[in-house]
């Protein structure tokens, strides 16, 4: 699980170096990730883990923290 998490945090840090994604919560609700980041993130995650993040996945629950993102990735991988 943590191997995916590490990868997710690495991608996130590429977007915003100044944010400690390991602990930071409410990424979506506090607009840390704006709409540009969401699209870039989705593109990177799809390529990295060979998954397809569909539109209905773009929800605060999935994008509010690195952990949530990792969980979503895991779930999509074994579909």
């Amino acid at each position: 699980m943590n191997e995916t998490l590490e990868k997710v945090i690495e991608i996130l840090t590429e977007l915003h170096e100044d944010v400690d994604f390991r602990t930071r919560e409410r990424l979506w609700d506090d607009h840390i990730l704006d709409s540009f980041d969401v699209v870039t993130l989705t593109s990177e995650l799809n390529n990295e883990f060979d998954i397809v993040i569909t539109a209905d996945r773009l929800t605060p629950e999935n994008f509010n923290s690195a952990q949530a993102l990792a969980a979503m990735v895991e779930e999509l991988e074994d579909i």
């Binding site: 709409s35 969401v38 699209v39 870039t40 989705t42 593109s43 799809n46 993040i53 569909t54 539109a55 209905d56 773009l58």
Partner: peptide, 13 residues
């Protein structure tokens, strides 16, 4: 959202 995350747009991104 669907347009933003559809394949062509992600490739464009």
């Amino acid at each position: 959202y669907p347009v933003s995350v559809c394949k062509p747009l992600l490739d464009l991104s």
